[in-house]
């Protein structure tokens, strides 16, 4: 069933059951995202895709909110962009994101967003947590210092590869991505070594061994097709 609505004052139409993000994308309207990846279950957790919907009090995440007839959506505003900037700053200050020595320098979604939203300094003090690096796997490395807890790795491994090697331990700011029963990655009994988690990671938290600074290049278009093709999401 076809529905009509407006996004940024533009009349658009979509199918019932589609999300605001999908319909916006179909019409060339870009909404920033970080935890979202086509083909994986939607979480609405990074809060970057929050949009204003007329008549409602709360901001809604475009990636998981279904469209409604006559919805009036605003994707950019001073208020929304201010929130996005601050969320990016919070993420950058949460762990140790030092681009200059990172594999993903130049190919990092967090970096791209920071640039897009004009983040040139941090309004919040960096927290400098002491976090480990797991280099036990033969081909890959997990560096918690670069992790933003988007859980794309968790979802792709559970939903697409079916191994469910990754999950999250603890809670709140103590949350950490974990392998099996907190095993070193190299000793995992479930990991298939497929590398999908490395491919979906938006930052330099997961990377291939043998890469140097700025050498991590994600094959994102190929990845999206792979993930979307294999999943049953939205089928």
């Amino acid at each position: 069933m076809s529905l009509t609505l407006t996004i940024d004052n533009r009349p658009v139409s979509g199918r019932a059951g589609e999300t605001i993000l999908q319909v916006a994308a179909d019409h060339g309207i870009r909404i920033p995202t970080l935890c979202h990846l086509e083909g994986l279950s939607g979480l609405g957790s990074c809060r970057l895709c929050l949009v204003e919907v007329a008549g409602g009090g709360k901001l809604l995440p475009a990636c998981v909110t279904p469209i409604r007839e006559d919805m009036e959506v605003l994707t950019r505003s001073e208020r929304l962009d201010r929130h996005r900037r601050r969320i990016i700053e919070l993420l950058l200050a949460e762990r140790n994101h030092v681009c200059a020595v990172c594999m993903a320098n130049g190919s990092c979604e967090l970096q791209d967003l920071a640039r897009e939203f004009g983040v040139d300094h941090l309004a919040f003090p960096p927290l400098y947590p002491l976090l480990p690096v797991d280099g036990s796997h033969a081909r890959f490395v997990l560096d918690h210092n670069r992790c933003i807890l988007c859980t794309r790795c968790v979802r792709v491994c559970a939903e697409i590869e079916g191994a469910h090697t990754w999950d999250v331990r603890n809670r709140g700011s103590r949350s950490l991505i974990v392998v099996d029963l907190d095993t070193p990655w190299g000793e995992s009994t479930t990991c298939t070594g497929c590398g999908k988690c490395v491919a979906v990671c938006p930052t330099g938290a997961l990377f291939e061994k043998g890469r140097s600074v700025g050498e991590l290049r994600q094959h994102r278009p190929a990845l999206v097709a792979l993930v979307a093709g294999r999943s049953t999401e939205g089928a």
């Binding site: 469910h164 999950d167 974990v178 392998v179 099996d180 029963l181 907190d182 479930t190």
Partner: peptide, 8 residues
């Protein structure tokens, strides 16, 4: 249930 989920 996956071990990582149990730990989580």
């Amino acid at each position: 249930v996956a071990p990582s989920k149990v730990l989580g």
